[in-house]
Nucleic acid binder design. Structure first.
Length: 167
DNA sequence: TCAATGATTTTG
DNA sequence: AAAATCATTGAT
């Protein structure tokens, strides 16, 4: 067992996001353990980031992002897809990483469908949970960056920031 | 290129 | 109470 500890998550989201690439996402389902390498992520950082849900302030939905790093933030988009996010930074700093892709499994909505992740995981801790956690994996050879996807509504400068990281 | 589909947020 | 929003996907 090689589980990542809380100190990994409580750093700034811009440090955590690229470090997540190549890590293993492990999930227990019916007493079988499956693991997938993370290949694509995006950083969402604070209330001033117009693309981040926390930019509108603390609401029942975004409350979990204001808590300590290492928790899971789940929410439904377009009425049909669960998005899987990892909360970062210390308490009261709303930051999260959206997991957009796993090795041989691209698309944030397809991940949660395949792994059977739903709202019951919201607020769960990757440090303590017995059904989902992260382990050290392969260090990626090279990391690419680009602007984030699907946030046209946020406007500049957020639209141009290279806060998407992928292998 | 666009319909499906629903929790959350705002009053467009 | 009603309407708009939306970090997507898959089919046409």
């Amino acid at each position: 067992m090689n589980r990542l500890q809380e100190s990994f998550y409580t750093r700034d989201v811009l440090d955590v996001a690229p470090d997540l690439l190549g890590k293993k996402l492990c999930i227990r389902s019916e007493d079988e353990i499956y693991s997938y390498y993370i290949s694509e992520v995006e950083a969402y950082r604070g209330e001033e980031d117009k693309a981040c849900h926390a930019s509108k302030g603390r609401t029942p939905r975004t409350e979990v992002m204001y808590r300590k790093g290492g928790l899971i933030y789940i929410y439904l988009i377009y009425g049909m897809h669960w998005m899987f996010n990892i909360v970062c930074a210390e308490k009261d700093f709303p930051q999260a990483v959206l997991i957009r892709g796993l090795q041989e499994l691209n698309g944030p909505g397809r991940i949660t469908k395949k792994l059977k992740i739903d709202s019951s995981y919201n607020g769960e801790s990757l440090v303590n949970s017995d059904r989902i956690w992260l382990e050290n994996g392969n260090k990626p050879d090279k990391i690419f960056t680009s602007p984030r996807i699907g946030i046209e509504y946020a406007g500049e400068p957020w639209l141009s920031l290279n806060w998407r990281f992928f292998i």
